[in-house]
């Protein structure tokens, strides 16, 4: 899932200066799961900002709203009555959500309440770890199901580097060395042979480096004629 964490209150209140009608919009999918933008987090953020507003006389009028999934136009459209009369929206969804709200309500300023971080999974309650770098050309079949692009600090394909010691990455003691894990995974899979052959340079075209990506599933795309025939909001 997409993992994000809240910006510091200081930064958020800095952004909110000069605004009066504020709507905090949370999201019920990924950011709720990583405890960044769910309904409770929206409530906590609302209370904290109301405290700041009364303590420092900011005069903010803060309202809370939830969206099922803030990256879907249909659901963000349901925010319309709540957004009427507000001059800014503090989105506690991931970056995608904030951008969707801004695209649908061009005259209302949308402020990012979260720093969207990565695609990962909860390791245990409260700890979320990056697992996938979205490089567009998966190599898990060569690395025993452990992604070196996302989980090796240097995205090496013929790791480990010289700095891996005690199973930890040189970058930080609590980051396991991906290649150490790859080695042990392939060992238990009995496929250490995969590490013999040097892997040639990777094409980064399908990755973010190739420019913003656009995935098209032709059989679900409505043709121009279908759109004309269907009409309505969709």
């Amino acid at each position: 899932m997409i993992i994000g964490e809240q910006k510091r209150l200081e930064e958020i209140s800095g952004m909110l200066d000069g605004h009066r009608g504020i709507l905090i919009a949370g999201c019920r999918s990924c950011v709720a799961i990583c405890l960044a933008g769910g309904e409770k987090e929206v409530a906590v953020m609302a209370e904290s900002l109301r405290l700041i507003s009364s303590l420092r006389g900011k005069g903010w009028e803060i309202e809370e709203a939830m969206v099922e999934r803030q990256c879907e136009k249909e659901w963000v459209a349901e925010l319309r009555p709540r957004i009427e009369g507000k001059d800014c929206v503090l989105s506690l969804a991931c970056g995608v959500g904030a951008q969707t709200v801004q695209a649908m309500y061009p005259r209302v300023r949308v402020l990012p309440g979260l720093n969207t971080s990565n695609m990962g999974a909860p390791e245990e309650s409260g700890i979320f770890v990056e697992k996938c770098g979205g490089c567009g050309d998966c190599v898990l079949h060569l690395t025993g199901g452990i992604c070196p692009i996302a989980r090796c600090a240097k995205s090496l394909l013929n790791g480990p580097c010289g700095g891996s010691q005690g199973g930890k990455c040189e970058v930080s003691p609590d980051t396991p060395c991906a290649w150490e894990e790859i080695y042990h995974s392939l060992e238990s899979l009995g496929r250490l042979d995969l590490l013999e052959e040097p892997i040639p340079p990777k094409s980064w075209l399908p990755a973010r480096d190739g420019g913003p990506r656009r995935i098209v599933r032709k059989e679900a795309v409505l043709t121009e004629e279908q759109k004309r025939l269907k009409g309505g909001k969709a």
């Binding site: 099922e68 879907e72 249909e74 659901w75 679900a220 409505l222 279908q226 025939l229 269907k230 309505g232 969709a234």
Partner: peptide
């Protein structure tokens, strides 16, 4: 939301 978008009669809803 796939069904909402493909249905010509907008029968599905959330």
């Amino acid at each position: 939301l796939g069904c909402l978008r493909v249905c010509p009669y907008s029968a599905p809803m959330i």
